[in-house]
Simulated assay, not measured.
Amino acid sequence: MRTKWLALGGLQTLGYPTTDEAVTPDGTGRYNHFSLAAGASVYWTPSTGAHAVQGAIRDKWAALGWETSALGYPTSDEYGVTGGRRNNFQHDYITWFSANGTTQVTYS
């Protein structure tokens, strides 16, 4: 967790941790939440590694049930796509669209 936090810019990008490192409800992974104004979390599992989820994408994933949702755990950090930003998850992805500030969940 600390390695990922530092790799992403630490305090300047994610802010301070607001939780201790905790075990996910399914017992598979671990997570930390951070103080970034838009909200940020880093989730880790042995099979997916550590990945950050932030802002509106994080809010949508949280509303769906975090890692217990149909999306599962994140498998990428947020990255740019045409018209917005995206995070990949075990079972597809969430895209945030900059033109209107909306998010879209895509399942295969």
Results as ranks from 00 to 15, higher is better:
S98Q: 03
S76T: 15
G72D: 12
E78H: 08
T95V: 11
L36T: 14
A50F: 02
E21N: 01
S98R: 13
S108A: 10
R86F: 03
R58A: 12
T103M: 10
T82C: 05
W61P: 01
N32Y: 09
N88L: 10
K4R: 10
G27Q: 12
W66P: 00
A37T: 14
G65L: 10
A56W: 01
L8S: 04
G15I: 15
G29T: 09
A62L: 07
P25T: 15
A22T: 14
H51G: 08
S47K: 09
G84Y: 11
F34N: 01
P46K: 05
G84I: 03
A52N: 01
Y43V: 07
T106W: 05
T28Q: 12
A38N: 13
T95E: 11
S35A: 11
H33W: 15
A52Q: 05
W66H: 09
Y43C: 03
N88V: 12
H33F: 15
T106H: 10
L36M: 13
V42D: 06
T19G: 02
R58K: 14
T18F: 11
A50W: 00
A56C: 01
T13P: 00
T19L: 01
K60M: 12
Y73M: 09
Y73I: 10
T75C: 04
T28V: 15
S98K: 12
Y31W: 15
V105F: 01
H51Y: 04
Y73R: 01
L71S: 08
Y43R: 00
G83Y: 08
Q54W: 02
R86C: 11
D77Y: 02
S47N: 07
W5R: 06
M1C: 08
G27N: 09
A62P: 00
V23H: 02
T75L: 02
V53S: 00
S69I: 09
T106P: 00
S69D: 12
G39R: 02
A22D: 12
E78C: 10
A63K: 00
W5C: 05
S47E: 13
H51W: 05
L14E: 03
V105Q: 10
D59C: 03
N87I: 12
A22P: 02
A7F: 06
P74H: 06
S69K: 06
T102S: 15
Y31G: 06
P46M: 04
L14Y: 13
G27M: 12
Y31C: 06
N100D: 15
G84P: 04
D92K: 11
R58F: 07
P17H: 10
R85L: 12
L64E: 13
G84Q: 08
T48D: 07
D26Q: 11
G27T: 12
T68Y: 14
A7V: 03
S69H: 09
V105T: 14
L36S: 11
A99H: 13
H33M: 12
A37G: 05
T106N: 08
P25N: 14
W96G: 04
R2G: 13
T106F: 04
T75E: 05
S98L: 00
A38K: 15
T18C: 00
R30N: 09
Q104I: 00
G80I: 11
S108P: 00
G9P: 07
T45H: 09
D20R: 07
T45A: 07
N88I: 09
G84K: 08
N100H: 14
V53Q: 01
A56L: 06
R85I: 07
T19I: 03
L64H: 09
L14V: 15
D77S: 05
W96C: 03
L6H: 08
